[in-house]
């Protein structure tokens, strides 16, 4: 028979003004004897324990923040087969890694933005199953990373936003060629090269666009008014021609109908001639259409030449800046 227990818990939450104050204090580490107890303590701290693959557990302290300290990691030692451990942005330090080092089945370890250093890494060298190690945003250096070559199964290592240098990574890659390191200096160089190529092409295109625009501005723009007039005239001509063509077509259709309705040879001749005249008129109209379109294009180019030139100049400046950035990137990655 269940009572409404959960609601009373919330009642307690609301009766205290504690809601307005700081979050409740974090329970300190207390030794446990069973796995079930350890699980309960971990959940109390805000950790999440999940199944990870076939054998093994994932313990996720990702959202607990400063609540998790080195001591709390001892709970992990009471769990069977911790395979994945997430400690990103927790208050864990090198001391805590002493406990982590004892989790011999650990396969993935996340230590982003924690206060660990090279000394802490030394304690991990016993993790024979470790495949993935994430040190993003920590203070490890080339020397610390070098120790990791002792990890036989290491396949992925992340050291972005750390003091680790490109040289250090290269050295490590030589010592442990099976490990994929991010960032990878070789890849970064490729990327920089390709970015430079792209930027160079962009500069060339921008220069071309500028040249065309300036040419138009110099040659066509002065003729803008004249071109417009020519366009208007041509348009008028075109409308007349279209009208004429339509009328002739109608005449041709009528003639054809008359023929079909039982006219004789004369009707046929009329129809054919009408048809011919209509087609000619159509062709003439087409030609005027083409010319009008050309004039329209030119008139447009004349009209917006000045603006296009300005835009193209801006684009060229931007492209040149991109090229400079790309060059810098490439130099940095050497």
């Amino acid at each position: 028979m269940t009572r409404y227990a959960p609601v009373f818990f919330l009642f307690a939450l609301f009766s205290a003004p504690a809601l307005a104050a700081d979050p409740p204090k974090v329970p300190p580490y207390k030794a446990v004897s069973t796995e079930a107890e350890a699980l309960a303590r971990i959940e109390e701290l805000g950790g999440v324990v999940r199944k990870a693959g076939d054998a093994g557990l994932e313990v996720d302290f990702h959202h607990t923040g400063a609540a998790i300290t080195d001591d709390h990691l001892q709970y992990l030692l009471s769990l069977k087969a911790v395979a994945v451990l997430r400690l990103k942005e927790t208050a864990v330090t090198d001391a805590g890694l002493a406990h982590v080092g004892k989790l011999t089945g650990l396969r993935r370890l996340y230590l982003e933005k924690t206060a660990i250093t090279d000394a802490g890494l030394k304690q991990l060298t016993g993790l024979k199953e470790l495949e993935y190690l994430n040190l993003f945003g920590t203070k490890v250096t080339d020397a610390g990373v070098a120790q990791l070559k002792a990890l036989p199964k290491l396949a992925q290592l992340f050291v972005a936003e750390t003091p680790v240098t490109a040289a250090g990574i290269v050295a490590f890659q030589k010592a442990a060629p099976g490990v994929r390191v991010v960032p990878d200096p070789a890849q970064e160089r490729e990327r920089a090269k390709s970015a430079l190529e792209t930027a160079k092409t962009a500069v060339v295109n921008a220069e071309e666009a500028l040249a065309t625009a300036e040419k138009d501005a110099a040659e066509l723009a002065p003729k803008a008014a004249q071109l417009k007039k020519e366009l208007d005239d041509s348009t008028k001509l075109l409308n007349d021609a279209k009208k004429a063509a339509d009328e002739l077509k109608k005449k041709a259709d009528d003639a054809t109908k008359r023929f079909k309705d039982g006219g004789g040879d004369k009707a046929k001749k009329d129809a054919d001639e009408s048809r011919q005249r209509a087609d000619d008129a159509q062709k003439a109209a087409q030609a005027i259409q083409t010319k009008t379109d050309q004039l329209r294009q030119q008139s447009a180019r004349a009209g917006n030449a000045k603006k296009r030139a300005e835009d193209a100049k801006l684009a060229l400046d931007a492209a040149r800046r991109s090229e400079a950035d790309a060059r810098k990137l490439l130099d940095e990655s050497r």
Partner: peptide, 27 residues
């Protein structure tokens, strides 16, 4: 903070008188 405190006292009383899932869910 003050408004939440004002809210809290009334909420506690209501939860006492209506200990039901909808109340728990809302709170």
């Amino acid at each position: 903070a003050d408004r939440l405190e004002l809210l809290g006292s009334g909420e506690a009383q209501f939860a006492k008188e209506y200990p039901l899932p909808a109340v728990g869910a809302k709170q």
